[in-house]
Design a binder for these strands. Structure first.
Lengths: 104, 104
DNA sequence: ACAAGATATAAGTGTCAGCTTATATGTTGT
DNA sequence: ACAACATATAAGCTGACACTTATATCTTGT
């Protein structure tokens, strides 16, 4: 049942987009605001939700707050998906492609 | 963006539980009702949502409706999870090992 | 034909999540 | 010290959604 919070938190598109951007690189709240049409408090609230789920971590530096993704927190979701995605062959091919792309 | 509907539909715990039971085996709506505290219409509504997302399929037989899971519909979710959990270094190694073993 | 059964749809309701504006808290530079 | 800045928190509003009961639709057995 541990995946419940992850599903709930990641169900929101804005929150998913924030997480995705933070996987690429660490960013401040102001950085994150760019490209989103919501207010700064909304961003902060989403970050708090992601943080409560362990999906992002915060590093404070003066008046700035830098956030970065913690993909390991996806583990329960990965487990769930692995359990129920029984169509392995295609998935293996996709994983190979993915790893090839990342090796460069 | 294709994973959006999957996240939304699977965010509901009751719906996830229904899907999980239907992965194990095909069941009628009445069968599914057992173990849940919600009404029959609620079950039907959840099944309709799962069906719209392609996560379950229906087979009619007389006055019965038999549902079964279609795990392949998880593909976009699997893809998303793989994309972002691959940034988890240990998972990369695990996946590489897995693929090496499967190449033989 | 009709009653009982299985499921779906309709309509209404309450709750909650995400949004907003306003404000608080803490920090930096002058 | 104070103004500007970066972020967080508070409070209130609104829409979406999961639920309910009531009813419709279709099927089966007598």
């Amino acid at each position: 049942m541990i995946e419940a919070e992850l599903f709930r938190v990641l169900a929101d598109p804005t929150r998913r987009a924030l997480f995705e951007r933070l996987v690429a690189r660490e960013m401040s709240v102001s950085d994150l605001r760019e490209g989103f049409s919501v207010s700064q408090p909304a961003i902060s609230q989403h970050l708090a939700a992601l943080r409560a789920a362990g999906l992002v971590e915060e590093r404070r530096e003066g008046r700035f707050a830098y956030y970065r993704a913690n993909p390991e927190a996806l583990a329960p979701l990965v487990n769930w998906v692995d359990t129920y995605s029984t169509f392995w062959p295609k998935r293996i091919e996709r994983l190979k492609d993915l790893l090839r792309r990342m090796d460069q």
